[in-house]
Structure formats: structure tokens, C-alpha cells
């Protein structure tokens, strides 16, 4: 996520979805769940239109995984109702399980089985005959570039290969709705990009995806709409662009020559914004009211205060800014480049 000067008015990724889709692939109303005294979810509403990606963002412990577990029948909600692919998640669990795929953050494949054996086993548990399950397994191994490793026990696989196999296992029955719980956590950048390509292709072919992630760039790239969840409630929902607009307009970023002048620089810029400038090291950031003339005015103010500037740029808010503004803390602390 570089602070490249923004291109404004880029294509909106949301498309022309109407606000309420009667044929929503996933629809939840008032979902609540408590574990003892801990209220993990407090009345979550959610809609995901067919063949789109909903990115579920939130800090650790916000309730993302609990929501996924409810929508995939692993947990029963205390209150509320939800349907996936038109099937109720509580009353019709077995029928629903035939229509969903789940890939989790722990890569739930059996280490002692080979790639092909894993997929064949899953296929047979979906009710395929052995030969059909095997054929489908081979097909998926090819699709996920795992043919060469097909006969090796999974414990010899790399992290990226395990995730691909995990995703392949979720796709055995060609489910119309796919749940991905932090699918790329812990993966190297190359494997993440590969996995993103696979997910985009599935969506282009009509699969609906609910994706939880801590990586905002992942959500920005894949998600048509984003729901931000914190303390068990959805606190914001919209397309990535809508959410960025909500945080405010352009952000001015000033890199100072001397970090010790950061406070003085913030002071100098205070009049340009309705908010207090944020400082971190030699970087001062502030939301500005209008785009035109902002850089010139900032340079003039800083110059008048005798502050040396290394670099200055305007950019659109990122999802990081959104996240920070909404939840009061940054998203993932680790691995964020």
C-alpha cells in the first residue's frame, strides 16, 4: 500500500447493485451468539448478492469467524435467522452443506494423506462414488497446479500448496457459495497473488464468496462490498469507494526532512483541516477539505514555519484509514507492508 498520489474517480468496483437483492446468495438478519458472558455477535444483518464478493473486515475477536461458523452450520445462532443459497442455516443444515464450500485459516486437510486422497475422501463424503470422487479430485489438482504433488503426503507441501488444496477441497461439489476464512493469512506474497487470481476466476464464473480477512489490500482487491465488524456488530457496510468517501476526502501526506519538527508541522497545518493532523515519525497526515491548491497552501504554511519538506502528496484514503476511523485502531499489526 504505497502512498502513491491518487487517481480520483477510478471505476467503482461495486457495479450497479441495487441495495436490496431479493435473490441474495447470503442473507442474515439479527444474528446473535454468545459464549458464556462473551457476546460474540450482537444482531448482525448482512446481504451478499450472487456472484459477488463480500469482504468481512474486523480486528481479531470482532466476531468474523463466529459469523462464518454460523453461516456454514458449524454453530447455531442464539437469535436471528439466516439463509445461504436460499436454504435456512438452522432448519435445513444437511441440504445446505451440499451447497457450500468452506476453506479455513488452518488449512483443514489431512497431512498424512496425499493431495489426491484428500480430495477423493471429501468427494466421497459429499456422496460421490469412488471413481467419480477421484476424477473430480484430479480435475481440481490440475486446476490448482498441484498435479505433480498429487501423490505426495500433504505434510511435504508448502504453505501455499496447502492453502490451494484446502480451497480445492472446498470446491469439490462445485458449491455456489464459498466461505473463505482468512484464506491468505501467513502466505508469501506470490502465493497470495495466485490465490487471489483463483478467487477472482471463481467469482467471474458465478460463485458467491464471503471472505474474512485482516488484510485491507486483499479486501480492496477482491471485495465488491465490504462489511466492517467490530465488537460483534456491523459498524459500516458499502463498496470500498463508498467507505473511503465516508472517511472524508483527500489525505495530505507530508514527509519531513527532520522528524523532530513533526509537532511544529502539525501545528502549521492545523488550519487546513477539520481534524487534528496525525504524526508518526517524519510523516504527518491530515485530511484536507478540498483538493485544489491544497499542496501549494501546505508548502507555503510549512515554509513560513521554517520546516523542511522531503516529499508531499495527496492521496485518496485507503481502507486502512477507513478501518482506523471506524474502529479506532489499525487492522493487522503484523505483516502489513
Amino acid at each position: 500500500m504505497g502512498a502513491v498520489s491518487a487517481t480520483i474517480g477510478g471505476p467503482s468496483s461495486g457495479g450497479s447493485e441495487t441495495t436490496v437483492s431479493p435473490e441474495a446468495a447470503i442473507s442474515a438478519r439479527g444474528i446473535s451468539k454468545s459464549f458464556g458472558d462473551v457476546r460474540a455477535l450482537r444482531g448482525v444483518d448482512l446481504d451478499v448478492a450472487q456472484a459477488t464478493v463480500l469482504g468481512l473486515l474486523g480486528p481479531n475477536g470482532a466476531g468474523k469467524t463466529t459469523l462464518v461458523r454460523i453461516l456454514t452450520t458449524l454453530l447455531t445462532p442464539d437469535a436471528g435467522s439466516a439463509s445461504v443459497a436460499g436454504i435456512d442455516v438452522v432448519s435445513d443444515q444437511n441440504r445446505l452443506r451440499e451447497r457450500i464450500g468452506l476453506a479455513g485459516q488452518y488449512a483443514a486437510v489431512d497431512e498424512n494423506l496425499t493431495g489426491l486422497e484428500n480430495l477423493t475422501m471429501v468427494g466421497r463424503l459429499y456422496g460421490f462414488r469412488r471413481a467419480a470422487a477421484k476424477a473430480r479430485g484430479r480435475e481440481l489438482l490440475e486446476q490448482f497446479d498441484l498435479v505433480e504433488a498429487a501423490g505426495r503426503p500433504v505434510k511435504t507441501y508448502s504453505g501455499g500448496m496447502r492453502r490451494r488444496l484446502d480451497l480445492a477441497a472446498a470446491l469439490v461439489a462445485k458449491p455456489p457459495v464459498l466461505f473463505l476464512d482468512e484464506p491468505t493469512t501467513g502466505l508469501d506474497p506470490r502465493s497470495r497473488l495466485d490465490l487471489w487470481d483463483v478467487i477472482e476466476k471463481l467469482v467471474s464464473e458465478g460463485t458467491t464468496v464471503l471472505l474474512t480477512t485482516q488484510y485491507l489490500d486483499e479486501a480492496d482487491r477482491l471485495a465488491d462490498r465490504i462489511a466492517v465488524i467490530d465488537h460483534g456488530s456491523v459498524i459500516a457496510e458499502g463498496t470500498p469507494d463508498e467507505l473511503k468517501d465516508r472517511v472524508g476526502g483527500e489525505r495530505l501526506e507530508v514527509h519531513l526532512e527532520d522528524a523532530s519538527q513533526a509537532a511544529a508541522a502539525a501545528q502549521a497545518l492545523v488550519g487546513m483541516s477539520d481534524e487534528l493532523p496525525a504524526q508518526s515519525g517524519a510523516l504527518v497526515r491530515v485530511g484536507v477539505r478540498g483538493r485544489s491548491g491544497a499542496i501549494i497552501e501546505a508548502v507555503r504554511r510549512l515554509d513560513a514555519a521554517g520546516i523542511g519538506v522531503d516529499d508531499i502528496a495527496l492521496r485518496r484514503p485507503t481502507l486502512d484509514d477507513v478501518f482506523l476511523a471506524l474502529t479506532g485502531h489499525a487492522a493487522a499489526s503484523e505483516d502489513q507492508a
Binding site: L74, L102, A108, L125, G127
Partner: peptide, 13 residues
């Protein structure tokens, strides 16, 4: 521990 039970439980088995 490894989540394989979750995989099983998400299947129509």
C-alpha cells in the same frame, strides 16, 4: 486442533 473436524462438519456427511 487442525480443523479437520470443522471440514467434516461442513460436509453433508
Amino acid at each position: 486442533q487442525k480443523g479437520i473436524i470443522d471440514r467434516f462438519r461442513s460436509l453433508p456427511m
